[in-house]
Structures are given as C-alpha cells and as structure tokens.
Simulated scan of single mutants.
Amino acid sequence: MRTAWAKQRTAVFGAVVVLVTAGMTAYALSAIAENDRRTSKATDATTTSMTRVEQGPRILFRHTGRDADYGHVGAVSLSDPGGARALTDLSCDRVHARAGSVSCLATERGVVSRYRATDLATSSPGKAWREVDGIDLPGLPSRTRISPDGKLVSSTVFVNGDSYMVSGFSTRTVIRRIGGASYGNLEKFRLVIDGRRVAPVDRNIWGVTFADDDRTFYATVATGGRTYLARGDLAARSLTTVADHVECPSLSPDGTRIAFKEAVDDGTRWTPAVLDLATGERTVLTGETHSIDDQIEWLDDDTVLYGLAREDEPVSDVWALDTSATATPRVLIPEASSPAVLP
C-alpha cells in the first residue's frame, strides 16, 4: 500500500511541478512581452518628446521617481519645468550639461563596482547624443560640472585610504578637456592660502565651477578643518583662496556672484548662501530651513536650484529659491536631482 501511495504522491507532485513551471513560464513570457511593449512604447515617446523639448530652452536632470526609469537623464522645457518630461536611456549618478556637451558620472555595479565619467555631445538640438570621451573614476561619484562653452569638464569623487584620514572619505577632483588632455588631480596645483604658499598633506578639493574665459575656475579647498573658496588658474596650475567657509561653489551667469552651501548650527547642516565676488558681501538664504547637501545651479541671475531629498522617501525634488535673504523655496521639478539649465 505504501508503494502505491508513494507512486501516487510522486505522480501528483510531478503534475504540480509541471503546472507550476508552466504557470511561471507563461507569467515570465507574459512579463517579458509586456516589458518589451512598455519599453518600445516608452522609447518611442521619449524620442519624440526629447526632440520636442530640445528645440528650446530646457533643464536637464536626473530622474528620481520610484519606477523603471530611476536614475535616467531627463529634460523639461524651461517654460514649463513642472510639466511633461522627456526621459532618455542614459543612467547617471550625477549629470551636468552645457553648450551641447553632457557629463555623466555613473556606477557600474557588479561583484566589484566600478565608476566611470562619460562625456557625450550632440551636433544640434534634437540629435542623438554620442560618446566622445570617458575615464574610469577612482571612487564614488560626487560632483561634475561643464564649462559655459562646453569644452572643459570637472569630476569629483569620494575615495578612502589616504594616510591622513583616521576614518571617512577624502576627495579627488580632476579637470579635463572634453575629447582632449587632462589637467590632472587639482591637489597637485600650487596652493596659496591667505597670501601664503602652502602644501598641506590633508588638502581636499571639490565642487568646481567654471568662468567663461576657458581658464578661470572656482573650487572648494579644505585643510586643517577649514573650507575656503579658491580661484583656480588652469594655465598657471594654481589655486588661490579668496574667501572662507564656502562649499560647492557655483558661479552666476553674469560672473559676479558665487552661490554655495554654508555650514551652520555647528556644522550639523548646510544652508544656501550667495557671495558677491567684488564686495565680499554674503547673503544667507534663510528661507530654506532644510539642510542642502548639493552643488547649487543657477536658473537665472536671481534664482538658484538645488536637489533636496524627501523625508523618509528615496526620492528627491529640484527646488527653486530666489536670492533675496528671506525668499520662500518652491518645488520646481518633482522627482528630480542634479539640474543643469540650458537656456
């Protein structure tokens, strides 16, 4: 009797396995087909939409919606930033763009993750982006910026292992000519702090922003527990401090002011602020009460943009804030980060 029951149980089990396997196979095939249909539909819509969006002024950004396009680069019309967005198949951790050039810092995940900076370009609005240059990165992507003429690009990453670090991360920042030579690690540049040439082993440099003369840039220099705004000269391979307590600078479109994040409340949070380069006057934008850990982007001469994560959600939004001291911030692009304005 046990043998007969065993045979019957084996037969029943085998039938269940066949049914479950068939069901799973059918579901998988259905899911694949549905995904292909959605991908094809999304690709068609994106191509048409991107062509339309790129015909005029726009904002490029990184999509942060909780969907299959998370991390993909998108664009919205500058005249309707909260409206319909176009999404591409380019995935980045950080992105920036200027004058037909795009910089994408990305993590290539695997058993051992790799990091890469890719430079892309387009010959004219609406045309496909093509890869023109790229380098492997020595650490986790943090910041990237392209010069106004689209010829220079900077990248900053977090690294570990520096001998002076007891714990945590330090940075590596390089500037390159897109499709050309690299100026190398900015820590190798001659450094002048408060009028005196120095060579501290603990220096860290990050957050490059470019002027429009193909030579001048600004960056944060940190050493000895202090942060400085430094003016860089690519031809002279030098960095000279011009102000202190400045992080992640961003030069205004007219070249007269620096937007940045300033540490407040004993360094427990950052608030957006603006520095007048001619007078040294600072305006702290107290209307923003959240901690802003981002490199600010200028929307125009009077408004700045930055990414801000939502509370208790893996989603961020791009906010806009007038540069008057007590202005109230507002969401400009929902489910977005890393904005780049292309007027």
Results as ranks from 00 to 15, higher is better:
71 G>A: 00
341 V>L: 10
206 W>R: 14
191 L>G: 06
296 I>Q: 06
30 S>D: 09
326 T>S: 15
68 A>I: 04
243 A>D: 13
101 S>A: 15
195 G>Q: 04
157 V>H: 01
84 A>N: 12
42 A>F: 07
165 M>P: 00
198 V>M: 00
283 T>I: 12
9 R>G: 11
24 M>Y: 11
62 R>M: 08
213 D>Q: 00
330 R>V: 13
274 V>L: 13
212 D>I: 00
233 D>G: 03
32 I>F: 11
309 A>Q: 11
269 R>V: 02
112 V>N: 10
337 S>C: 09
291 S>D: 12
263 A>D: 14
72 H>R: 12
129 W>S: 01
330 R>N: 06
188 K>Y: 09
27 Y>M: 11
294 D>F: 01
61 F>I: 09
339 P>H: 04
36 D>H: 10
334 P>F: 00
83 G>Q: 05
43 T>F: 00
326 T>K: 11
52 R>W: 12
236 A>G: 15
83 G>R: 02
20 V>K: 00
223 T>I: 02
18 V>S: 12
79 S>E: 12
12 V>K: 11
34 E>K: 13
295 Q>K: 09
132 V>C: 02
123 S>A: 13
247 E>W: 05
316 S>Y: 04
59 I>F: 04
74 G>E: 09
77 S>M: 07
125 P>L: 02
244 D>R: 12
143 R>C: 07
267 G>D: 08
120 L>M: 14
309 A>E: 09
161 G>H: 06
87 L>M: 13
70 Y>T: 08
335 E>A: 08
317 D>Q: 03
88 T>Q: 04
19 L>I: 14
322 D>N: 10
329 P>H: 07
258 I>V: 15
29 L>A: 09
9 R>Q: 14
192 V>D: 13
10 T>L: 12
343 P>Q: 09
270 W>Y: 15
42 A>L: 07
311 E>P: 01
286 T>A: 12
229 L>W: 03
91 S>L: 10
296 I>E: 10
85 R>H: 13
131 E>W: 00
227 T>V: 14
110 G>Y: 03
66 R>E: 15
208 V>A: 05
211 A>M: 05
25 T>R: 07
320 A>I: 04
335 E>K: 09
157 V>R: 01
182 S>T: 14
178 I>Q: 00
312 D>R: 11
